[in-house]
């Protein structure tokens, strides 16, 4: 297992260096600039956090298709409170930071509720994760649309821009948040019982159950974590564009799934690391910037990301087969077909 993990991360590192190298050779005056790197580390935290969310869901053998809609809903809730900052401030006699704190707290509370609903549907109702989260995807986005009646929300206090446009120790705030979240997730996955149980559940739910793991609680907690990541992403997102509209960032779903798989996560469960996904985020952002500099249209990028998702899966297929013929016991076992089908 650890061999496969390491080899995937090394491959990713090589890909990352190769992309950087190609960009540096062909676009030295545009790619290798401070401005470009600064804009790169500003951009990826939004969808990087969503990729982490998909990672968590995939480790347990599921998927969360509702992350972008949770982002929409929590973003709308936060934006509604922020837009009313003058009224709230006057009414309660509090400063803008109190209102911002309240907005973030409400957004995260809504995220927790969304996560609990997903978790309950998957565990207690026994609905497969794909279809449960596809349904809640419509539900959450629907609530966001009803709350805003389709209009955008603007007029946040200027202090709020700190999260998407500010700096901490000279680094963009969202980048610092991203790094902290990544470290925390890494700790949860490798150093806590919850993390260990998530991998176990993803490898084989039945074995996990008979080993005394409370699968229901583990899955509900996983989906709460997933939703919280989407909630944090929404704060960064609405702060960086200084407005909110339901449905904003819908394209991030594909990107998040692509990154999770590129990062070596097994969609059938039991395998995936924060480091792998982080490397995949860097690689994707480097490509994203390259495509932007070459002024490709968003449509062409959509095409490229879709194609890449397929190619990455095909490469995984060949690597797994190679490992199975070569390493025998060491290689991760081939998942039976029915499981892969359901994933």
């Amino acid at each position: 297992m650890t061999d496969a993990k390491r080899s995937n991360n090394i491959t990713l590192l090589i890909i990352l260096v190769a992309i950087m190298g190609i960009m540096a050779i062909f676009l030295p005056d545009k790619f290798l600039t401070g401005i470009n790197f600064r804009s790169m580390i500003r951009q990826f935290p939004e969808y990087g956090l969503l990729a982490f969310a998909i990672l968590l869901a995939m480790i347990t053998g599921g998927i969360d298709l509702s992350v972008v809609s949770i982002t929409s809903l929590t973003g709308v809730v936060a934006a509604k409170i922020l837009a009313a900052h003058a009224v709230i401030g006057e009414l309660w006699g509090v400063g803008p930071w109190t209102v911002i704190f309240l907005a973030i707290l409400s957004a995260l509370a809504v995220a927790v509720l969304c996560g609990i609903l997903n978790g309950i549907l998957i565990t207690l109702a026994g609905v497969p994760a794909i279809i449960a989260t596809l349904g809640t995807n419509g539900l959450f986005l629907g609530i966001a649309i009803i709350l805003t009646e389709g209009h955008g929300i603007t007029g946040f206090p200027t202090e709020f821009l700190f999260f998407g446009n500010g700096r901490v120790l000279g680094l963009p705030t969202q980048f610092v948040i991203f790094i902290l979240v990544a470290l925390l997730l890494g700790l949860i996955l490798t150093r806590t019982a919850q993390g260990f149980r998530m991998y176990m559940l993803g490898s084989n739910p039945l074995v996990a159950k008979f080993s005394g793991v409370n699968n229901t609680m583990v899955l509900i907690k996983t989906h709460v974590l997933t939703a919280l990541l989407a909630g944090i992403a929404s704060i960064i997102m609405i702060s960086s564009v200084n407005s909110m509209r339901p449905g904003y960032g819908q394209a991030y779903l594909l990107l998040a799934v692509l990154i999770a798989i590129l990062g070596g996560t097994n969609p059938a469960g039991g395998f995936g690391t924060v480091l792998g996904v982080t490397l995949a985020i860097f690689a994707l952002q480097a490509m994203q910037s390259g495509l932007n500099i070459l002024s490709f249209t968003p449509f062409f990028k959509k095409f490229i990301w879709g194609l890449m998702l397929l190619l990455v899966m095909v490469i995984h297929f060949y690597r797994q087969r190679y490992a199975a013929t070569k390493g025998l016991g060491k290689a991760p076992p081939q998942k039976p077909m029915e499981k892969a089908e359901a994933g």
Partner: peptide
């Protein structure tokens, strides 16, 4: 490639 159908068709 026996890939998961959801991931393929999402792509």
């Amino acid at each position: 490639f026996r890939l998961p159908t959801l991931i393929v068709t999402l792509g």
